[in-house]
Design a protein around this nucleic acid. Sequence first.
DNA 1: CATGCAGTCTAGACTAGTTCTAAACTGGGA
DNA 2: TCCCAGTTTAGAACTAGTCTAGACTGCATG
Lengths: 130, 130
Amino acid sequence: MNALIDILRKNGIQPTPQRLEVAKFVLATQSHPTADQVLKEVLKRCPTVSRATVYNTLNLLVDKGLIASRTLKEGAVVFDPRTQRHHHLIDTETGIIHDIPWESVDVREPEICEGFEVEDYHVVLRGRKK
Amino acid sequence: MNALIDILRKNGIQPTPQRLEVAKFVLATQSHPTADQVLKEVLKRCPTVSRATVYNTLNLLVDKGLIASRTLKEGAVVFDPRTQRHHHLIDTETGIIHDIPWESVDVREPEICEGFEVEDYHVVLRGRKK
DNA sequence: CATGCAGTCTAGACTAGTTCTAAACTGGGA
DNA sequence: TCCCAGTTTAGAACTAGTCTAGACTGCATG
């Protein structure tokens, strides 16, 4: 928990009990929660936290680069503590998002986009359990 | 226009003036409009059309495979009449989505996803004008 | 010890995208 | 002509997310 406080401090985020609860959950999650799922989780431990605080904290963590926000699901942004480059596989039956290691997909660095400087790219796969 | 009526009929969609206006615009567009942008365009020619009809028609066209709905923009689904496989480049400054031909990016068919059958995949690139 | 102040938190209002609902409309058969 | 299935409409409802105004916190100062 002290480690967590340090992480926030080092990134210029003043630690508060609410922010710690949000960070604790979202930095450790193995899934890709929406803001509402984070809120539900945090409410279990901190029943008075408000939605605004959860949204503010998530946006703060994104601004500081501690988590990433991704537009993969229809209807809601999801948050992802794995900020290194990787790909995503979306289960078309359950909607669950899985991480795919960067090296698992071989993409030839695309320089093909006339007039554009590509800053980033990743592959979005869709599939279902065999 | 008769060609359009045929397309709808062949796909089991009863043609109505409202549906024809929606289809005419969304099947011919070079961009990736949101439902609201389609509504605005259709209102120019058919000022009494309702939002619900535009949404219903777009969803109908998606169900029949005549257009695709894509989750690329934060906050709103976009529609795309180009249903063949291709990639997308999102301009990080303007938010404009560009199509990238399938052959322009060389992805080694990923079979790496243990336990999953990949049905589809595409590359999402982000960049800015040089 | 009181005061002030910057930063934070909360509840609830607000906005935008999308779906739902109930009632009115339309147009081809019996 | 009447009916019925399918369609359209306006507006309500719902959901994700942001904004706002006021209350709270805790440190620094007099």
